[in-house]
């Protein structure tokens, strides 16, 4: 067992453990935090594969963006600190079954598919190359996925705005416009008192 294997299993444990904890935790804030660990583990995988750019983007988009948005919406939720109810047994079984089927399906697809290299030499992942590849419309260009991803982010943003819109607009005290030449008000009350003084 060499160092690479150890690192791989550590990362895998982080991803899977974080995911499981995120699903099973009874506190919604903690779920978000475990999700964060899971996503960081995935970023770790990208680093492990020497794809630093993807790893950094993973951190920026998912950890810095999505998880922060999730945490924000949790802040805005009522009663976010309370323990959530345990799901009904039927529902739990159904979810477990669905997850298991998905897992088996994926495993099957991976085992059946024979992965073939494209034959092209690996691209040196420098900023310039990545930028050129991202915007290229040739066979291995990424312009379409790039656009689709930005659509995804737009959708996420709109969703957040919709959540944050309040139905009830709270009454706000409108600051009166300050007039330029307000006449100094003289204290009439004071005048009266002056005569009453002993």
């Amino acid at each position: 067992m060499d160092a690479r294997t150890i690192i791989f299993y550590l990362l895998a444990a982080t991803v899977i453990g974080g995911g499981l904890m995120a699903v099973t935790s009874r506190k919604i804030f903690r779920s978000a935090v475990f999700l964060l660990f899971s996503l960081i583990g995935i970023a770790g995988f990208y680093f492990f594969l020497d794809q630093e750019f993807i790893a950094a983007v993973q951190v920026v988009v998912y950890v810095g963006g999505i998880v922060v948005l999730i945490l924000f919406s949790i802040f805005l939720t009522h009663g976010s600190g309370e323990d959530m109810k345990k799901p009904a047994l039927g529902r739990a079984v159904f979810s477990a079954l669905a997850a298991a089927i998905g897992c088996v399906l994926t495993m099957y697809l991976i085992s059946e598919h024979t992965f073939q290299g494209s034959g092209k030499p690996a691209l040196e992942p420098s900023a310039g190359n990545i930028g050129a590849q991202m915007l290229s419309v040739t066979e291995y260009g990424f312009i379409l996925p790039f656009e689709v991803v930005s659509m995804l982010l737009l959708a996420a943003m709109i969703g957040c705005i919709v959540i944050a819109i309040k139905v009830k607009v709270p009454e706000q005290k409108v600051m009166p416009k300050i007039k330029e030449e307000t006449e100094p008000v003289e204290l009439e009350v004071v005048e009266e008192l002056k005569t009453e003084e002993v």
Partner: peptide, 28 residues
């Protein structure tokens, strides 16, 4: 902008003999 300086309105201790301005701002 409310003029209420006691030193001007009801001078005491000889404030009436002293020159000074009552500062008024209208911003509020």
């Amino acid at each position: 902008g409310v003029s209420c300086d006691v030193r001007k309105w009801f001078p005491y201790d000889g404030y009436e003999k002293v020159q000074f301005k009552e500062i008024l701002e209208t911003g509020g």
